[in-house]
Design a binder for these strands. Structure first.
Lengths: 144, 144
DNA sequence: ATTTAGTTTAGAACAATTATAAATTAGAAA
DNA sequence: TTTCTAATTTATAATTGTTCTAAACTAAAT
């Protein structure tokens, strides 16, 4: 336990969560990194268990991830299929999604320019614009 | 049985499917309409059963919908959450999604102009650009 | 130290989807 | 037609992802 846990403790407290061992393990995997991390809950759980060298309950992972999402420390990504993906990059940005490999990559906000948007339906307000650029290997030709 | 079933028979045949009673029931609900239809499998199943006044197996609905999707007669829509939505509008277009009501609405292709797109990652090719404009009631303020 | 409210946990419950195998049916062939 | 065969439908089981629950545990206030 060398790394500085203070920022994680604060992040947890500001999400209304007590800083427990388990939650700090989750924080280390999620936030102690330079690059964006895209993950599903079960991928995250495996990483946490490798990193802390002991099991963690699935429910704890779900609960903590949802608390972070609701407090703006994680983003959920819209994707086809029935698995939920999250993203540690909470700044405004878009995604490449390789549907052959399941790989997700960030697209910086300034790499896509949207010059026209429709008005929101009556009584509604635009909250967010998600863009998923679906890619696949050059040589393949199937639609999926 | 007044409506002309020929186009459905052809659509089924071209998808490699025999035109059975069940599949024709599915076709009638899916394709005998002017406006776009957005649906989940269970919503579709209920509509079919109301329309034909008899039960249909869930597996048949899944199989047929997937065959139509693989043959380009239906589109799957990227959305957060763990339910899969389909769309009878297979032309290039985008969507409004009201995450409070679960309502989906089409956005015509020309209502969004994208002026800049990133290059696909090395060795990959852009197959599709999905845009989901998330909306909610004006008066509400929660992020979700 | 004691207390209490929040947390973790394993497992149950639930929901969406896919797989299975027996009964049925479409369509080709006789 | 009737017969035959492979495709299809069906109910149900299996699988997967997610949420719920209630008992055991723990953080932190007293």
């Amino acid at each position: 336990m060398i790394s500085d846990l203070k920022p994680y403790v604060e992040r947890l407290r500001s999400s209304g969560l007590r800083p427990t061992k388990q939650r700090l393990s989750i924080c280390k995997v999620l936030f102690d990194r330079k690059a964006t991390f895209h993950f599903t809950i079960d991928q995250l759980k495996k990483k946490i268990e490798k990193s802390r060298k002991s099991k963690i309950s699935l429910a704890t992972v779900y609960n903590t991830v949802h608390a972070f999402k609701n407090n703006g420390y994680l983003k959920e990504i819209s994707l086809r299929g029935n698995k939920t993906f999250f993203d540690t990059n909470v700044t405004s940005h878009y995604h490449f999604y390789d549907y052959e490999t399941g790989e997700l990559m960030d697209i910086k906000n300034e790499e896509i320019i949207v010059n026209k948007l429709p008005l929101a339906p009556k009584g509604k307000k635009i909250k967010d614009v998600e863009i998923i650029v679906r890619v696949a290997n050059n040589n393949h030709n199937q639609k999926k």
